[in-house]
């Protein structure tokens, strides 16, 4: 039997039907066509499916869609405002902090959450906070530099 869920995604009221076994990741991608969120490992190791749930970064593969009734969800699709990239996105772009791009939406979401919590993190805080996001291309340095640049560029808007 399908369950009806009402939630807010990227500031808009969204309703969907789901089976209890379906993850938030499956619903975002397959039902709501929010395919920015990626499936990497599907077991909570890689962070490619990171979304912000009620203000906290979570692996959407480890959330049942039925759990998000009444929740507030942010995905990478809602990060840019009026075609204006978020400082984290701008700095990832300018600093070439991506190669294949599969991990990038997850990194953007965790980095955004970090800068909202700590607007001026040091390198260790950045690396510690991003430990749940794996990138097999870049070697991480460019990602860390991009987050540092974003922190320096402007206080991150919410």
């Amino acid at each position: 039997m399908k369950t009806h869920v009402s939630t807010t995604i990227n500031g808009e009221a969204v309703e969907f039907l789901c089976q209890p076994r379906q993850s938030l990741l499956e619903i975002l991608r397959d039902e709501l066509s929010l395919t920015g969120c990626k499936e990497g490992c599907n077991n909570g190791n890689c962070g490619a499916c990171t979304v912000i749930l009620n203000g906290l970064p979570v692996d959407s593969c480890l959330v049942l869609a039925v759990e998000v009734e009444g929740a507030n969800i942010e995905t990478v699709e809602g990060v840019a405002q009026q075609r204006q990239l978020h400082p984290v996105q701008q700095c990832f772009l300018e600093g070439a902090a991506l190669q294949c791009g599969i991990c990038t939406p997850g990194f953007i979401m965790t980095s955004k959450a970090l800068l909202e919590k700590h607007p001026a993190p040091d390198e260790e805080e950045i690396r510690f906070s991003l430990a749940g996001n794996l990138c097999r291309c870049t070697g991480y340095d460019k990602i860390v530099h991009a987050v540092q640049a974003a922190a320096e560029s402007a206080p991150a808007p919410k």
Binding site: G44, T50, G132
Partner: peptide, 9 residues
């Protein structure tokens, strides 16, 4: 315990 995403839950 895990990374930040895990600690959130």
């Amino acid at each position: 315990i895990g990374g930040w995403q895990i600690q959130s839950r």
